[in-house]
Simulated scan of single mutants.
Amino acid sequence: MLYNKKERKILRKQQTYKAFREKLGACHKALELRWSKFQRNATLLKRQLTRQFNGHLGGERSFSTLCFALALHEMTEAPFRAMDEFDVFMDAVSRKISLDAVVDFALAQGSQWIFITPHDISMVKQDERVKKQQMAAPRS
């Protein structure tokens, strides 16, 4: 009788162990599926970032950095953004192209952007959604 009791107890423990093993296997499968989806998404996001970066690209190092920043901005959402002195090392032609590209991008995104630059902003195109504010030059 004691033997039968112990045998039933062992059988219940084995069934419990088997059930836990099945649940653990299901968890492993779910983890593997999520990991593969994560890797696929990372690959797709990398491709998308590269494509968007190349779409904005123009050559000069500062401009290339700006294009990379725009590609990153395009992939994330924020109610407003700020870019500080992004054009400081650019020549006048690159600065004009960059400002046009950034303003067009900002208008297309629909979020609020703040651009801070020590350079002249008179060439920034006019739009009802564009407000330019120029501070007085500091006194020496």
Rank of each mutant, 00 (worst) to 15 (best):
Y3W: 10
K5T: 13
R8G: 08
K9D: 06
L11S: 14
K13T: 06
K13C: 01
Q15K: 13
T16I: 09
A19D: 13
K23I: 04
K23H: 08
L24C: 06
L24D: 11
L24Q: 11
G25I: 11
A26W: 05
C27V: 11
H28P: 00
H28Q: 14
A30N: 12
L31E: 10
F38V: 10
R40Q: 14
R40V: 06
K46G: 15
R47D: 10
Q48L: 15
T50L: 15
R51P: 00
R51T: 12
N54A: 05
L57S: 05
L57M: 07
C67N: 01
F68H: 12
A71Q: 02
A78R: 08
A78I: 01
F86V: 05
F89Q: 05
D91V: 08
D91W: 08
A92W: 03
S94M: 06
R95V: 01
K96Q: 05
S98N: 02
A101T: 07
A101Q: 04
A106F: 01
Q109Y: 04
Q109T: 09
G110L: 03
I116N: 06
T117F: 05
T117V: 04
P118K: 02
P118N: 08
D120G: 07
I121E: 01
S122N: 11
M123E: 11
Q126T: 14
Q126G: 02
V130M: 03
K132D: 02
A136L: 14
A136E: 15
P138E: 15
R139L: 09
S140H: 08
